[in-house]
Amino acid sequence: MTETKTIRVIRGRRPKVVVIGGGTGLPVIVKSLREQNADVTAVVTVADDGGSSGVIRNYINVVPPGDIRNVLVALSDLPELEKSVFQYRFDTSDAFFAGHAIGNLIIAALSEMRGGIFQAVQSLSAMMKVDGHVYPASDRPLTLNAEFTDGTTLAGEAEITAAGKHIKRVWVTDSNGEVKPQAVDEVVQAILAADVVVMGPGSLFTSVLPNLMIENLGQAVLQTQAEVIYVVNIMTQKGETERFTDADHVRVLNAHLGANFVDTVLVNIAPVPSHYLDQQKYNEILVPVRPDYAGLRAMGCRVISADFLKLRDHGVFHDGDKVASEILNLAFQVGTMKKRKR
């Protein structure tokens, strides 16, 4: 179902869309938005400490590059061969480089050369002919912290997801413990100047919220006149969103920023075929997120429900093209009155 509100049409320019998140969902959405002629800015989490990104981070203390690498490729105009080289991951038999993606090593090297991840990514964006902007959420590596419902706490994204506990709240700290985490000014200004700001799809506590917990970034999301959209995950996630409805996801977002700030929610209504999901390969994925339209409306959300489902490789994903189309429909229908902040 779709609820409406007063709109105006943006004419004569590409709509400005800021997408905030991390993980596998972010590059899918930004790639489709780019292909549908949006002016895309991707704000990428820097609190990941797992996989190749985590190993590189531990050795040379740079912002984890994996999510940034994938978004750069998604927005790049380079030929496929060059992009595949950037994405190439060394075989496990190559002891020294085992598991590392070439792009991660390049980003780490440029971070040292340019004195930080932000300028490194801007240089690499030019080299890779990126159509849009890729902004690390912070120029410094951050640590994700979580309090669980049993009162215990943990630090580190990998440790949090491996704990198998239910998360109550998260926050971020500077990995060196020296300064309060801040987003660079370009991130804040992009959010304030956007027509729409999109959060998700992605892990609620470990991909979306780490960005919003950077104080000036979260405040920019509260202050922007843009339409704020949340793309609800199709499936619940073990240890993060077990038994969550779509409204529960939004309640957690609102609680972390202390306001009902989500304007529109995109909800998948296409059924997931039983026994399609490979539970061994996707062992964190549980069951489809249950709808709670009344709960969403009570928080002031417009609901757009449609078939956003894409099935591939025995996994359950969002169809990037369908999600991007809805986002751009909203971008061309920005409210005429100053948005009421709740």
Rank of each mutant, 00 (worst) to 15 (best):
D131I: 12
H133N: 11
H133G: 05
V134P: 07
Y135P: 14
P136R: 14
P136C: 07
P136H: 10
S138E: 13
S138T: 12
S138V: 14
S138L: 13
D139W: 07
R140I: 14
R140M: 14
R140P: 07
P141W: 15
P141E: 08
P141A: 12
L142C: 09
L142Y: 08
T143Q: 13
L144C: 15
N145Q: 14
A146W: 05
A146V: 13
A146G: 10
A146S: 09
E147C: 13
E147D: 11
E147Y: 12
E147A: 11
F148Y: 05
F148P: 00
F148Q: 00
G151R: 12
T152H: 09
T152P: 09
T152D: 05
T153S: 03
T153R: 03
L154N: 04
L154F: 10
L154V: 11
A155K: 06
A155G: 08
A155Y: 02
A155Q: 09
A155E: 11
E157Y: 06
A158M: 14
E159H: 13
I160M: 08
I160D: 02
I160K: 06
T161M: 13
T161S: 11
T161K: 11
A162I: 09
A162P: 01
A163I: 00
G164M: 13
K165N: 03
I167L: 00
I167R: 01
K168V: 01
K168P: 00
K168Q: 01
R169H: 10
V170F: 09
V172N: 03
T173V: 05
T173H: 07
D174G: 02
D174R: 07
D174T: 02
D174A: 06
N176C: 09
N176F: 08
G177A: 03
E178G: 07
V179L: 05
V179P: 00
K180C: 06
K180G: 04
K180M: 10
P181M: 07
P181A: 05
P181C: 07
Q182D: 04
A183G: 08
A183C: 04
D185N: 13
D185K: 15
D185Y: 14
E186R: 07
E186G: 12
V187Y: 00
V188C: 10
V188D: 03
Q189N: 15
Q189Y: 14
A190Q: 06
A190W: 02
A190Y: 01
L192M: 15
A194L: 12
A194C: 08
D195L: 10
D195R: 11
V197C: 03
V198R: 04
V198T: 06
M199Q: 01
M199E: 01
M199Y: 00
P201H: 01
P201D: 00
P201N: 00
L204E: 07
L204G: 04
L204H: 06
F205D: 04
T206L: 11
T206G: 11
S207Y: 12
S207T: 10
L209P: 15
L209S: 14
L209I: 15
L209H: 12
N211R: 05
N211Q: 04
L212V: 12
L212I: 12
M213A: 13
E215D: 15
L217D: 02
G218A: 00
G218M: 01
G218R: 01
G218C: 01
A220I: 10
A220W: 05
A220S: 06
A220M: 05
L222M: 06
Q223R: 10
Q223K: 10
Q223I: 03
T224W: 01
Q225M: 05
A226Y: 02
A226C: 05
A226S: 04
E227F: 03
V228A: 04
V228T: 10
I229L: 03
